[in-house]
Design a protein around this nucleic acid. Structure first.
Lengths: 201, 201
DNA sequence: GTCTATACACCGATAGAC
DNA sequence: GTCTATCGGTGTATAGAC
């Protein structure tokens, strides 16, 4: 009976409801902040009663967990899709990678807080959800590896500097480009320090 | 009657209670996180009932407001006290300033979140409290001015890079020094970019 | 100024009918 | 799978006695 049309339809419907719940949760997070997400509000938005959510998620934190994985998977997809269009030279690739991350992070404050900040007191990503972030980090590291950057300290510095620009942009000039404009300069600083060959003119 | 001993004692006692409340609030913030600070918990720690706090603060946010000002005033004092011991050369001063800020920020996560992150959904610092942060920023800017750094973009870059190291340190290696160790290198990058003269050997 | 008592609005989660 | 009803708990804030 496995794989029968009946079974597929049921599973599809179930998955659709799950997606609907998560979409509503993101909606609330965008409008009122991550910590203000409540089961009541999620349920209301999709025309359900709060207890019904428990048929699809074991707890509120399970919803956050799914959102966490979703966010990292999304960035993984964005990065993978963007890489083929990256320039060939190391400096160009470094800037393209930084820009891709910057724009993704700045594009959604709630998502960035969930992915990169410990904002929810009682939430810790499950091992499965954490896998999504590790997979993403692996892709980033392979990209850096091509450029010739392997040392942990160099990777740490790279993530800190780009992340610093992201945070200032979100905290002090949301929607603007005051720190976004400093990204090329920052990447050049780093490229010089790492001794990357000059870009082809 | 103004300034009579009786009056002074009363005002002193009142101020002491205020300080006690704030100290308890910080204690809770350190142990359970900023968002988990509740009037109940504050009151319990100082042997009071929650409603009694309203004799000293108009609301919970008024407590956060006082904490916000307190934190910035504290950093102002720390910075002012540290400056006389700073090296004379520009590069040395730049690193000393960055180190002072880094150590202060990393030394207290809750304080850093209150000062530099928008973590509390319904809290916005009052104009008076914000003055404390502006005064502190003014001191920092005058320090940078001596070194010859005046352009807004340069100041923005400086704060973003140092802040990026702070955030990574707190998020990924609390208590350690993985990003702390990258501070001199980062400041050197920046000093080179700004064309600061080499340090005296 | 501090207390007791309480109002009021939330929250996450569970039990059990349908 | 969704519902109603409800439990047990959280929180801020106010009223009024002392």
């Amino acid at each position: 009976m496995v794989g029968s049309p009946n079974r597929d339809r049921k599973a599809e419907r179930r998955e659709a409801t799950r997606r609907e719940i998560l979409a509503a949760a993101w909606e609330v997070a965008h409008e009122t902040g991550l910590i203000s997400v409540t089961l009541r509000e999620i349920a209301t938005r999709i025309g359900m009663r709060p207890p019904s959510l428990y048929s699809h998620f074991a707890s509120k934190n399970a919803i956050f967990d799914a959102m966490f994985a979703q966010a990292w998977d999304e960035f993984h997809a964005v990065l993978e899709k963007a890489i083929p269009a990256f320039p060939a030279d190391p400096r160009g690739r470094l800037l393209a990678g930084a820009s891709t991350y910057f724009d993704f992070a700045v594009g959604d404050l709630a998502r960035h807080q969930l992915m990169d900040m410990p904002m929810l007191p009682d939430f810790t990503p499950s091992a499965e959800a954490f896998q999504s972030s590790l997979q993403c980090y692996g892709l980033m590291r392979s990209l850096m590896d091509e450029i010739g950057i392997q040392r942990q300290a160099d990777l740490d510095l790279y993530t800190a500097l780009v992340g610093g620009l992201v945070n200032q942009q979100l905290a002090n000039d949301p929607g603007g480009d005051r720190w976004r404009a400093l990204l090329p300069r920052t990447v050049t600083l780093l490229a010089d320090d790492l001794g990357l060959p000059p870009s082809p003119t």
